[in-house]
Design a protein around this nucleic acid. Structure first.
Length: 1134
RNA sequence: AGAUCCGUAGCUCAGCCUGGUUAGAGCACUACACUGAUAAUGUAGGGGUCAGCAGUUCAAAUCUGCUCGGGUCUACCA
């Protein structure tokens, strides 16, 4: 064997990672990890496409670590896991980025810059940071196919989207309707919720608000309101947007809210009025001292008098009619009927959105200008009035207000607030109950800073509500991590689902493939490029489309060219022929980018135009994983489209990871400057430590406080320890020439310690597998962590150290066979642990795992694979797991720990041997457990003998505590009494209970109680005292140490000290571990005898051929052993 | 406003599902020890109203309800 294990001068996770990365690239390990699994069962993973026009952040590292570790794990388990990367390329963020870099605004599109040029820039810019992303992907070790990603702007991708849209259209799921959307009159454009959520859009503003008076029409329904009052009855309703009052068509009340009829005076005109409002809100408008005040009294001039006439539920008000508040030419019944022939406005309706927090509990309802208003308006056939145009000004026919802007949209110098004027007018007419400035939070257009209004706009919808029940049903079959996201956040979302507003009025996006005639009577939805070509041919034939000069006579070439990019503005130049022969133009809408990403299961394969078989095998996904913010984003659109198109789930398991916060728990934001640069982090700490930290620190779905100190800790504790363990192994294995050439020693022939660590290892394999199968990587990685640190390094290696460097005894020049076997067993065991750990940790820390695996495997050849990622994931062998053995070792650890703490307490160092430790038996099981590990305790704590005290001895004083679990169930309320009684039991009573049973309340008869017998299982017995010994206790386990130091023990301690000092000298002199020496000591008389007595032991330990005593030593070195100073010299024998 | 997650030592987190004795670990801190794994390691110590309140129970960090604080998503409403 010429090859040795690599030894390293220091741990550099980044260097190791770079080296392994190079190896992966050269040997195409990722590609092999997929191709080697050809024919295996696939495990389907979908990559949620990031947008490459922004820089990646640290939060991308966590979700990608999760994705990667699951995929690597499944690969090692034998599945074939293809991972196609993808890019989300459409949408507003891209447009904004382009506008910023070009220094233009939306208005300039089509003027300063053509749509063609604009979109070309988008296409170019959107992958601006692709290189950075790819770089991060590689550096963090995220294995995903970067060479063949799907890109949402590509024609093939769009063609699949069109296919899907057509399918929805044919099923009747794609329809056009009006919806109320945020709209910026100043910018002349609708705003998406994303735009509305830009920072700073919601501002506190003061607006003129008015409580208006709506006069009730007296009829059968309203008659009950007129009982006991004189004159008119009115509803009062509040609004912060008086400009919507001319468009009022209804009043909404809450079914469960109680309302009252109040007799009072109009505060402005002082005419008597009777008003209806929510009972709860009376104090908001009326002073308590005004209640039941005489209407004509003097006081009534200062304090408005009022009287609650009667109260009733909101339900009773339903259907009552009232007089139109501000009639004008533009809002006559005729006009209203135009919007809905069945319109029946000016009545009270019920709505569940009504609250009693603001206003009067009666909501002024103008269906055109509020989403809720629109909804109830439609349900109740209120009709629709849009008295404000898209510029934000009143249309003609609204009397004196026509032509006036409802808000100051044009920065007019002398802008008169029309809301004030409306209020003043109503006040004069006696139709105002209260007018005041009201400060509230109102959205503003992020671009123009002007207030947004809600406005009815044409929109295309997908009828998701049609399959709502099916979506809920199928959702129940999805395994959500954490479960609460699926049932809670997502489940609720599904329960309250509304139709999906698909259309966006933008430039860079997937065009909606619907063409329609000018009157909207005839429509066609295009589902493929071929269909489009066919239709264009018809159109060219018909003469609706003319060939440009350069294509004269080359219709096909022209069509080919025209359909080579399905984006605007090209698609919009296409005019098609309707069945009746009329021209049709494309509707202006683009589709929501979420449709792009939600369609990726099929669009990434250009299904159904290509890859039908591939798609079939890769749908639905076994696993997806994204941030929890995608719940109503990608997770939803994937699910909705899968149900709509295929009546299937899109994914079977989904992990939603939480947010990454900074170390103070604040959201990371560029503005605050607390963002973590993932590149810097990876460079500084290496990908393995970063990944390990992210996974072990908190469950993926908990939000994570990111602190680089934590990564340092991981580096030092976990990787440092594992690295040291490897180094230890490599060092001695090289010295001993252990290269795994020997036959594997059967596990049952190995020593206790070896069998124990192998049992623990297999238990670990079981635990890790169970957790990873469950998509719980955090406990899995933590278990590996604790195995490596606590069991392998801190116990196994520490206890076995001697086995590795102690040479086998020689008898007649031949090494003792059992010594050799013991040593090989130790090497084989440690090797097995290291190799298996490298496999177990491979999904989480792929670089280091491979580094470890390859360093070992290069020499020991336990596996034919060249990378750990091509090997099989360890499967626990139940035959090797011995829980009893693990318990035994735990006992040894506990006993040793107790003894060490006692030594500490009395200040006797471990090197000083002690004669005896006493351990009171806790029964047969305990003794059987203890016996096999006695020698471990002895060597670990340097104690000559371990004596077990029999169960019933008179020697130790015991005390007992109640076992609450067993007794509590039986005794219930008597538990307290029993606990204190048990605490006071004598040792003799405790023994009796342990042997058979003890009557706890001998006087039960007298007191008329039930007899209470307790047995050993009801007691937790512990040792209180062992006379003459120092004791230490953990639970019911007790150890007592014999502290007597006999001369023999002292001498042995002395010799051990000496060995220790000489070892230090060897190290100081930079001697090799294997160098032989001669030790020369200046003869000081006393110590000579001790040293001579232990000559053999000392020589063996320090690798000395002999110890020479000389009368005086001039060039020696002084060492202190216990309280003696010795002058010594060590000489290397060459 | 609704939904959801989180709140345990100075920090990061276990424990909670399935209630039970003195609530654990690591880091940090302090002291001592160890020194052929050594940028390691061991032992000990200080440090907790388990966010608060109420309920269920013999018994609550654990189960229930409410409140408070933080995060996220959705909505933005007269």
């Amino acid at each position: 064997m010429d090859k040795k294990y690599n030894e390293f001068s220091r741990l550099s996770l980044t260097d190791f990672a770079n080296e392994i990365l190079k190896f992966w690239n050269q040997e195409k390990i990722f590609e092999k990890s997929v191709s080697e699994k050809d024919g295996h069962q696939p495990f389907v993973f979908y990559e949620g496409p990031p947008s490459a026009n922004g820089m990646p952040g640290i939060h991308h590292v966590i979700s990608r670590t999760l994705k990667d570790l699951v995929c690597r794990y499944k690969t090692m388990q034998g599945f074939q896991v293809k991972r196609k990367g993808g890019w989300d390329t459409h949408g507003l963020p891209v447009e904004l980025g382009v506008e910023k870099s070009l220094g233009i605004s939306k208005e300039d599109i089509g003027k300063k810059i053509s749509v063609e040029e604009y979109n070309a820039t988008c296409r170019r810019e959107v992958l601006k940071f692709k290189d950075k992303w790819d770089d991060l992907t590689r550096k963090m070790g995220y294995w995903v196919d970067l060479e063949h990603p799907y890109i949402t702007f590509e024609n093939n991708y769009i063609e699949t989207l069109w296919w899907a849209l057509k399918k929805l259209y044919d099923k009747g799921y794609l329809y056009k309707s009006v919806s109320i959307q945020p709209y910026s009159p100043a910018a002349g454009t609708g705003l998406s919720s994303h735009e509305l959520n830009q920072p700073g859009t919601y501002k506190d503003v003061k607006d003129t608000s008015i409580v208006a008076i709506f006069t009730v029409r007296r009829n059968e329904k309203s008659e009950f309101l007129f009982k006991n009052v004189k004159g008119n009855v009115s509803f009062i309703a509040w609004t912060t947007t008086p400009w919507t009052l001319p468009s009022n068509l209804g009043l909404t009340v809450g079914e469960k809210i109680e309302y009252s009829l109040v007799e009072t005076l109009n505060p402005y005109t002082h005419e008597p009025v009777n008003v209806v409002l929510a009972t709860q809100l009376i104090p908001r408008y009326f002073k308590p001292e005004g209640e039941n005040l005489e209407f004509n009294s003097d006081q009534a001039k200062k304090i408005i008098p009022w009287k609650n006439i009667q109260s009733f539920g909101g339900k009773q008000l339903e259907g009552i009619s009232y007089e139109q508040l501000m009639p004008s030419e533009a809002n006559t019944m005729e006009k209203i009927k135009e919007s809905d022939p069945e319109a029946d406005p000016f009545k009270v309706i019920l709505g569940d959105f009504v609250t009693t927090e603001d206003g009067t509990g009666i909501v002024h309802t103008a269906p055109a200008f509020g989403a809720d208003d629109f909804k109830v308006g439609k349900q109740n056939h209120l009709g629709l009035l849009v008295l404000v145009d898209k510029k934000g000004k009143f249309i003609d026919g609204v009397g004196e207000f026509s032509g006036r802007y409802v808000k100051d949209y044009r920065d007019e110098k002398n802008y008169q607030d029309v809301n004030v004027d409306i209020s003043v007018m109503l006040k004069k007419e006696g139709k105002a109950f209260k007018i005041e400035k009201f400060e509230h939070n109102y959205p503003h257009c992020w671009r123009t800073d002007k207030p947004v209004i809600y406005y009815p706009l044409d929109a295309w919808f997908i009828k998701t509500t049609a399959v709502k029940d099916r979506m809920i049903e199928l959702n129940k079959t999805i395994n959500w991590k954490p479960e609460s996201t699926g049932t809670g956040r997502f489940g609720n979302w599904l329960e309250n689902m509304v139709d999906w507003n698909l259309s966006r009025s933008r430039f860079w996006g997937t065009p909606l493939p619907i063409w329609q005639t000018e009157d909207g009577e005839e429509k066609i939805c295009i589902g493929s490029i071929n269909d489009l070509k066919t239709e264009i041919r018809k159109s060219v034939e018909k003469g609706f489309m003319e060939l440009p000069a350069e294509y004269k006579g080359q219709t096909e070439k022209f069509i080919e060219q025209l359909t080579s990019d399905l984006h605007k503005p090209f698609v919009d130049t296409i005019i098609l022929v309707s069945p009746s022969g009329k021209p049709m133009k494309r509707v202006p809408a683009l589709v929501d980018v979420w449709f792009d990403s939600g369609s990726m299961p099929y669009a990434q394969w250009h299904y159904p135009f290509e890859n039908k078989e591939i798609f079939k095998q890769n749908f639905p996904a076994d696993f997806i994983c994204e941030g929890v913010d995608q719940t109503r984003g990608w997770f939803y659109t994937l699910h909705a489209l899968a149900v709509l198109l295929f009546d299937s789930v899109a994914y079977k398991n989904v992990v939603s990871n939480g947010l990454v916060l900074d170390k103070n728990g604040n959201k990371m934001s560029k503005r605050v400057g607390n963002v973590i640069d993932p590149f810097k982090t990876l460079d500084e700490f290496g990908p393995d430590a970063t990944r390990w930290y992210l996974i072990t620190n908190a469950s993926p779905w908990d939000s994570l406080r990111f602190d680089t100190e934590g990564i340092k800790e991981v580096q030092r504790k976990f990787f440092g320890t594992l690295y040291n363990t490897y180094q230890f192994f490599a060092l001695y294995a090289n010295v001993d020439g252990f290269f795994n050439q020997e036959k594997s020693i059967p596990v049952n022939e190995r020593p206790e310690l070896d069998r124990w660590i192998l049992s623990a290892l297999n238990s670990l394999e079981k635990e890790v597998t169970e957790n990873l199968d469950n998509y719980e990587p955090t406990p899995a990685a933590r278990a590996i962590d604790s195995f490596v640190n606590d069991q392998l390094s801190n116990w196994y290696v520490r206890l076995c150290r001697r086995r590795f460097w102690k040479p086998a005894r020689k008898e007649n020049g031949v090494e003792n066979a059992s010594d050799v076997k013991d040593k090989i067993s130790a090497y084989q065991t440690l090797l097995e642990c290291l190799v298996q750990v490298s496999k177990l940790m491979a999904p989480v820390a792929p670089f280091f795992a491979d580094w470890l695996f390859r360093n070992l495997n290069a020499v020991v050849k336990v596996d034919t694979k060249q990378s750990v990622h091509l090997t099989d994931f360890p499967k626990a062998d139940p035959k090797i797991i011995d829980k009893e053995l693990e318990k035994r070792m735990e006992l040894a650890q506990d006993v040793s720990s107790l003894i060490l703490s006692l030594r500490k307490k009395v200040n006797i160092k471990v090197r000083q041997p002690l004669q005896k430790v006493l351990i009171p038996s806790l029964g047969d099981e305990f003794e059987n457990r203890l016996k096999p590990v006695v020698h471990i305790i002895q060597s670990e704590t340097n104690i000559k003998e371990v004596e077990v005290l029999p169960v019933n001895n008179d020697f130790i004083k015991k005390k007992a505590k109640a076992n609450y679990k067993t007794l509590g169930k039986r005794l219930g309320a008597g538990m307290k009494w029993a606990a204190s009684t048990i605490q006071n039991l004598s040792g003799e009573q405790i023994d009796r209970a342990s042997d058979s049973k003890l009557l706890l309340n001998p006087e039960y008869d007298k007191k008329g109680e039930e007899a209470i017998y307790i047995t050993s299982e009801d007691l937790e017995v512990s040792t209180e005292e062992i006379p003459g010994y120092e004791i230490a206790v953990k639970g019911s386990l007790t150890v007592a140490l014999d502290l007597e130091l006999t001369p023999d023990l002292k001498n042995e301690g002395f010799s051990r000290e000496l060995v220790n000092r000489v070892q230090n000298l060897r190290k100081e002199k930079n001697l090799e571990v294997t160098d032989k020496i001669v030790l020369i000591i200046e003869d000081k008389g006393l110590t000579k005898n001790i040293i001579s007595d232990y000559n053999d032991y000392i020589c063996a330990e320090i690798l000395a051929r002999q110890i020479d005593f000389v009368p005086s030593l001039t060039n020696g070195e002084q060492i202190e052993v216990n309280n003696d100073v010795l002058t010594v010299q060590i000489k290397k024998i060459s």
